[in-house]
Structure formats: C-alpha cells, structure tokens
C-alpha cells in the first residue's frame, strides 16, 4: 500500500461524515423553522433527533481526526486540514444545538395567535442553511472564494436580525401584552444570528486549511 493510502482513506471518512453532519444540520434548521411557522410540535421533536445524530457524527469525526493525528503525524497541508476539521465540527455541533433551542422555543408558543407575520425568520433560516452548506462545501472542494464569501452572507443575516429586533421593539411599545411572544421571537432570531456567526467561523477555518492563515488573524 502506498505511504499515503491509509491517510487518504481516513480523510475520505472525515469528508463523508462531514457531509452527513452538514445534511442533518440543514434538515434541523429547516425543520425548526417549519415547526415554528406551521406550529407543529411533531416536527419540532424531529429536530431533537437530528441533533442527536449530529452529536454522534461530531464524535465520530473527532475520533477519526485524533486517530489520524496520532498515527499519521500529519504536517503542512494535511495538518491544517485535520485541525481545521476538528475546529469546524465544534461550530457545526453548536449550530445543531441552536436549531434544537429554536425547536424548544417553538413549542412554547401554545395556541395563541402570533403577534406578527413570520417573514424575516424563515428568510434567515434559508440564508443560514446556505451558509452552513457553503462552509462545508468550501472545505471539501478547497474553495477559498466560497469560504471568504461567508462573511458577506452573514451581513445579510445580521441585517435581518436588526429588522426583526426593530419590529419587535415597536410591537412591545405599542402593546406591552405582546412582550411575552416578542421575547420568544427575539431569542429565535438571536439563535439564527449566532448560526450565521458559527458559519463564518467555519469559513475562517477553511481559509486556514487552504492558506495557512486564519481569516480572523488579519482583522
């Protein structure tokens, strides 16, 4: 067997698990928003299952990376690829937790009519799903431009966050009775905003894997 064959094989396993982790997170973000919009607790509960799967995958990838570090002593590009994967999965796991948190909050609204029409939150969900997907794809395809595009994408998420915050503040001001729901919506929006930040972190680790310098270092 050529010297690098076992390394390439193990790295392939990391890639496969990362893609799978990414897929479950997309579903989790999609479903937590769906649960909120459709007021469906069954869908919310499904998010918990996705989160469990993500946790398991994080553990598998971690073990695989540890094994590569121990057995293969990767250096240079290989080393950066493995350490970046190890850092990325922490962000991915957090994202999954946040989807779970959103699902939990979605279950707390009960039967009361929503104080506002949901438009920005689903938009934020669509954007963040794309960001997570792009982050993982950038890693696998070593696509530096895509990795660097995440920062810009996050600006849109941040803008929507501000819009929602403004709307909710206005609602509370007009009718303090909306405060209870407004706080729940606010938390959901904050979680989505955080998901965007984690996706940016992923982009920075991809940049490190490709170039050797971490995006955050330069700013």
């Amino acid at each position: 067997m050529p010297m690098r064959a076992s390394y390439e094989l193990e790295l392939k396993q990391v890639y496969d698990n990362l893609i799978s982790m990414c897929r479950h997170i997309e579903i989790a973000i999609e479903k937590c928003t769906q649960a909120l919009v459709q007021r469906d607790n069954v869908i919310a509960a499904e998010v918990f299952k996705e989160d469990k799967l993500v946790d398991g995958l994080e553990h598998d990838i971690e073990q695989c990376c540890f094994k590569i570090l121990l057995m293969e002593h990767p250096v240079a590009g290989d080393f950066r690829e493995i350490t970046a994967a190890l850092k990325m999965i922490t962000d991915l796991e957090r994202i999954s937790d946040q989807a779970r948190n959103i699902a939990e909050i979605a279950m707390q609204f009960g039967d009361e009519k929503y104080i506002k029409k949901l438009e920005h939150i689903p938009q934020m969900a669509v954007l963040t799903i794309q960001m997570v997907k792009d982050g993982v794809l950038a890693y696998i395809n070593r696509d530096l431009a895509l990795a660097r595009s995440l920062e810009k994408a996050d600006d849109k998420v941040d803008e929507l966050f501000k819009v929602v915050m403004r709307d909710l503040t206005e609602l509370i001001r007009k009718d303090p009775a909306t405060a209870e729901q407004a706080i729940l919506f606010m938390m959901i929006t904050k979680y989505l905003e955080r998901i965007g930040d984690h996706a940016v972190n992923i982009g920075e680790w991809v940049e490190y894997a490709i170039t050797g310098s971490h995006g955050a270092e330069e700013s």
Binding site: R4, Y7, A76, G77, F79, T211
Partner: peptide, 19 residues
C-alpha cells in the same frame, strides 16, 4: 515549514507524497 511551507516540493516531501 511544517505547518505552512511555501514551496510545493517541501509540502510533498514532508507529507510523504514523494517516492
């Protein structure tokens, strides 16, 4: 050199891509 070599030949050698 071992985390981010600038020359592709160094990278190939230290990561075992030669031979």
């Amino acid at each position: 050199v071992f985390s981010n070599p600038f020359d592709g030949r160094t990278e190939s050698y230290i990561t075992g891509r030669f031979g």
